[in-house]
Design a protein around this nucleic acid. Structure first.
Lengths: 258, 258
DNA sequence: ACGACCTATCTTGTATACAAGATTGCGAGG
DNA sequence: CCTCGCAATCTTGTATACAAGATAGGTCGT
């Protein structure tokens, strides 16, 4: 991510390269945010676990203030839930909320794929191809953390190819939240995931907006179905839960999203 | 919003009515958030204006801490921009960002209208009718603040009718951000706005998902066009700016969104 | 033994204090 | 007259302290 900045400049005034440079050394709060987010997404903290300010402050060797602000920032991202005067916990989502998130994500990913197919930015497409190859190669190995990272990277690149930063931000937020839900079973179907990525990218390259949108939408919905199915059978094995919404739940969405 | 809670209960154990009751008396931070957001959306603070923690703390007669957290919360909503060690300012959006926000909002509103039309929740529809009548009545009078409030209310109700809270939250955030951009010219075309609201609601009542989505999308895009046109002629009058993107910019989006 | 109340403890909410980065204006030197 | 540099000031970042709300465990009464 960081480019060489120091090199000699031929021009008289050295132009401000990249960010205003003061933004580089981050406040403690941001470091805590990044660390906490990573810990949550990696599953180091489980859903529902309490996040006590004092304990985190001690862990990170900082005062409570940066920790507090970090927690609030993550709450805004939807990764932690805070109850007034009762503290924060790692967010957990009901089946209904999970379904809602997936439907919205499907719609947004479809929109973005459409935009990307419309633009066909050659640079982004080249970068996406690289990521795709890397992903398909690693899909067999099965290092979960690395696969999650590559998946995130692919989706980030696709978002960049859509050239709508507002949309990209929303998609990233929703992706992190769904990843949090999926975390227990994250390595599920990596090969199929990357096959779908390939198909989406091909449609983008072909400039086929309709197809790109359709495939992107299905990509999200199918991942959601895989999760909900697994969660249901898992629940049935444990507590013999009633026939809750599952694969069927999302079918209606498929028909309309792109 | 606050219901009567004290009344005698016939049941042996008084059931927790509504929220856990401890959530009622809000922390100072939340009060500051609400106040600041209202002040920003009402135009009391203009775009780009600095938000100095000390000054706000003194204004509100609280310490800097709640103010800090409030500013960060509003930053997460996209209403203020913070630069590290340089403080916060009321957010301002470029033409490109505004266009992006409008396109995303159009997509989400379309999705929500589709969901609402699918559900046809009788209760919500009745409430929406009330709001619609009130809105059309007031559209002629032209009290800008009241119209903004009613518009927000209508969209909130429509979101509730869609029964997807994740979607509703995102729509509210985007609506507030666009309202911030539109603020200077907010009273623009109130009559047409409420005519569009009426058409959307009719499509929802008829259960016509396609039409509801189409109309909702257009509703957002047309409001965006009105704004961009006004902004452009305004800019041309002042600084004779080049022919920037405007009405044309959003046309491509119209063809595909629903 | 069971339940209600009361207290000890933990945790969050708010305030204040201090350190360090950013900005601005003035003065010295060219 | 302009520019460079320094310093005074303003503002944010972080830490610490204290107040008040929530929780849990024990004790007393029945």
């Amino acid at each position: 991510m960081s480019e060489a900045i120091a090199g000699r400049q031929e021009e008289g005034v050295l132009e401000a390269e990249g960010p205003p440079l003061g933004e580089l050394h981050a406040p403690l709060r941001d470091l805590v945010v990044d660390r906490l987010r990573a810990d949550i997404l990696s599953g180091r903290y489980k859903s529902g676990e309490r996040l006590v300010e004092d304990r985190l402050a001690e862990d990170f060797k900082v005062s409570r203030n940066p920790v507090r602000e970090a927690i609030r920032a993550l709450a805004a991202e939807g990764l932690v839930a805070v109850a007034p005067r009762r503290g924060a916990t790692v967010a957990g989502f009901s089946t209904a909320e999970t379904r809602e998130m997936i439907e919205v994500r499907a719609t947004l990913e479809a929109m973005n794929a459409r935009l990307a197919a419309r633009r066909r930015d050659p640079g982004m497409i080249a970068t996406l191809m690289e990521c795709l190859n890397e992903g398909q190669r690693r899909a067999g190995e099965g290092d979960p953390a690395e696969l999650v990272r590559l998946n995130a990277h692919f989706h980030d690149l696709l978002a960049a190819a859509g050239h709508n930063r507002i949309l990209g931000d929303l998609m990233r937020q929703l992706r992190e939240r769904t990843n949090l839900v999926f975390a227990p079973r994250s390595a599920n179907g990596a090969a199929q995931t990357w096959e779908e990525h390939r198909a989406i990218l091909e449609a983008v390259i072909a400039g086929d907006e309709e197809l790109a949108a359709l495939l992107a939408s299905r990509h999200v919905l199918q991942a959601g179905e895989r999760h909900l199915e697994a969660a249901q059978t898992e629940a049935a094995a444990g507590g013999e839960a009633g026939p809750t919404a599952s694969a069927v739940t999302l079918e209606a969405a498929k028909a309309r999203s792109p």
